[in-house]
Write a protein that binds this DNA or RNA. Structure first.
Lengths: 165, 165
DNA sequence: TGGAGATGCTTCGAACTCGAAGCACACGAC
DNA sequence: GTCGTGTGCTTCGAGTTCGAAGCATCTCCA
């Protein structure tokens, strides 16, 4: 990478803008459905879905949750508080490490996820997959997965170094 | 794995999650660069770029700006206020329609855009295009462009209250 | 011409987000 | 042990976002 001209070609710009706009529009659409049908924000849904669908035990550490959802720690504390107040989640200090907090989804949380999923899927169908055939969907996944892995590997995440106090 | 009532298949879910995560990570990375090198938020950069690079006259109506950037009107009022206070933009009532406000980029605004573009491009290169070959980039654009057009045409349900003329 | 409704923008309040600072516990070196 | 540093989470303040409500202007049509 000796020389790097300060411009991208049309394809690259097109891909960049299309990516950001599609994601933005999709997020708006999804957010609205979640709010209407389940009184959840997108982040809250992500958290519950991760706990309820991805985790075998239904619980995870705060930090792992934050990393998994690409979210700030303080923001997670706030959202976890809301979810706990709503009874969708329980927080308890971890057994093996007194510092860490384990978040566990409740039955109410699971049923809230189940309640929202059909509409969620429907929005995705209408907004996203209506314009993508199966092979195209497959192709999109194949294109984006390496990109995600690449970006996760070299993150400008702020969690990196902590300054002295 | 819980069984979800109306689930999408693995490819579809994979595409959805990958899309949202890539966009999220990319936005974080870009936002950080813009803040450091130009004291701009992502939205502010979008607005200035649209005025400075896409518009022949360097000016646009508030509403068109908001639509073009996928942003709420009230949010745009706020950001336009900040940009104006920073001298990067000027607001003036439109000549032909007293209701509408025309936003015009200033010379300072143009130079601010020019100042951050190289770093911006570099971030895109490292984060996004490092993991995409030229043909892949082309393919991504070809996949996402129809999706964007589809989503722009079919906005989320209740957004239809106030439509364009 | 004169309203009724549509449209453009702003104001307002509430909610959300982030990073920095702070507290508490963990772990290793000595 | 006990000190120093690292890690996990929360608190705090500032800034940003949105939708609803409000005001001003425009358009249409009887």
């Amino acid at each position: 990478m000796a020389d790097s001209p300060a411009s991208l070609d049309a394809d690259q710009l097109g891909a960049y803008f299309a990516l950001m706009e599609v994601a933005g529009l999709l997020r708006h659409a999804v957010e609205q459905q979640l709010r209407e049908e389940g009184d959840l924000s997108y982040v809250q849904f992500q958290l519950l879905a991760r706990l309820g669908l991805d985790s075998p035990t239904g619980s995870e550490r705060m930090t792992d949750l934050a990393d998994g959802v690409v979210y700030s720690r303080s923001g997670l504390t706030y959202q976890a508080g809301l979810l706990e107040k709503a009874g969708l989640v329980v927080r308890a200090p971890s057994v093996d490490d007194e510092r860490s907090v384990t978040v566990t989804i409740t039955d109410a949380g699971r049923s809230r996820v189940a309640q929202v999923i059909p509409g969620h899927v429907e929005v995705l169908r209408q907004q996203l997959f209506a314009a993508l055939s199966r092979p195209q969907t497959q192709a999109l996944t194949d294109l984006l997965t390496p990109v995600r892995d690449h970006m996760r590997a070299a993150p400008p995440r702020s969690a990196g170094a902590r300054r002295r106090r």
